[in-house]
Amino acid sequence: MSEYSAFTVELNDNVAHVQINRPEKINAMNAEFWSEIRDIFAWVEETPEVRVVVLSGAGKHFSSGIDLMLLAQVGGQLGKEVGRNARALKRKIEELQSSFNAVDACSKPVIAAIQGYCLGGAIDLISACDMRYSTADAQFAIKEIDVGMAADVGTLQRLPHIIGDGIMRELAYTGRTVHGEEAQRIGLVNSIYADQEALMTAVFEIAQSIAKKSPIAVQGSKEMIRYMRDHTIADGLNYIATWNAAMLQAEDLRVAMAAHMSKQTPEFKD
């Protein structure tokens, strides 16, 4: 496992803990963050021992979003010709998008644990996760509108599938802050907890419960759920039939059935 400047990564009992580690900068997303998260999720994908990912932020806040210094650097590279500026900006936006696409495309479940600020680009990030949990005092906001731009790294594309179109539009147009209780009510987070310690304890319990399941079944379920976001019911039914024509022959099914019949806890291979 590599060393990272914007993250710490640990693997214990089939759960990878990926933590944004810039607490002195409110975990703002600098240039290293965007490249390292791609590398980390490539490692997650390639490592059979990883069955679940917990994504968190060190310190008092999950993340304040994109580092303004990075935006200033991008702006400083622009010239006077609009067409060439546009092409350069499009390439940069697509590069940033690829970082969170790596999270979204990950075959293993990714669980976000959120405390304090979750602003701007951090909303893009948690929108790419499977589930989200937070402290009661967490603060969520789509802040891009307040700096004169539309969110461009996934929020506007993924969030309507999580909280619904109407409330997403309200938050995107107003930039207002949503606190933990409302976040749970609108479905942005599954549950809220009194403090960060309780949050992390609960999230790792959930992660461990998933990690004990058949990785064939868990990853197949995620693939089907993700596929349905962009396809019809008929497409999805055909896909799961084709998928399970192979996966139902996996050893995991026999292990699970035998354990169930003998009232034992099954143990699955990576």
Rank of each mutant, 00 (worst) to 15 (best):
E182N: 02
A113Y: 01
V9S: 11
H161D: 13
T242L: 10
A151R: 00
D252W: 00
A42H: 10
F33V: 03
F204H: 13
A250T: 12
Y133I: 00
F41I: 13
G164R: 06
R38K: 15
F7N: 03
A72Y: 08
A202V: 00
E3C: 10
V82A: 15
D235I: 00
M261G: 05
M200W: 03
D252V: 01
K80C: 10
T174G: 08
A207V: 11
E144Q: 12
A122W: 00
G166D: 11
E94K: 07
I142G: 04
F140R: 01
E181S: 13
N12L: 14
I126V: 12
P215R: 07
L96Q: 08
V218M: 09
D230C: 10
N190P: 00
G116S: 05
K222P: 00
Q264T: 05
E81Y: 04
Q264W: 02
I40C: 09
P48C: 10
T232R: 04
A194T: 13
I66V: 06
G83C: 03
F41D: 09
K263F: 05
V50P: 02
D104M: 11
K263W: 02
L11D: 12
D146T: 15
R185K: 03
L253V: 13
G116K: 02
E36Q: 00
K212T: 03
A258G: 06
L89E: 08
L70M: 05
Q97F: 05
V18R: 04
Y239Q: 14
W43T: 11
N27Q: 07
G175F: 01
G116A: 13
I93F: 08
R132V: 00
S191T: 08
Y133S: 06
P23W: 07
N14G: 08
W34P: 00
A183C: 06
S191D: 14
D39E: 15
D146Y: 08
V52K: 10
I192T: 11
Y239G: 04
I20T: 01
D124L: 04
R51I: 07
K263Q: 11
A16C: 12
K60N: 15
A31V: 03
G59M: 01
G175H: 03
D146A: 15
L125E: 03
E24N: 09
K143W: 11
E251V: 00
I66G: 04
D104K: 08
V74Q: 12
F100R: 05
T201I: 12
G79F: 04
G79M: 10
G59T: 03
K143Q: 15
M261H: 10
Q184E: 15
P266Y: 04
E94W: 05
A245T: 05
A72T: 10
A31N: 06
A6T: 01
D195V: 03
I26A: 15
I163H: 04
T155V: 07
A16T: 02
S262M: 14
A198T: 13
A258M: 04
I142D: 04
A194M: 14
M247H: 09
G166R: 02
V218G: 05
A112Q: 06
M257G: 03
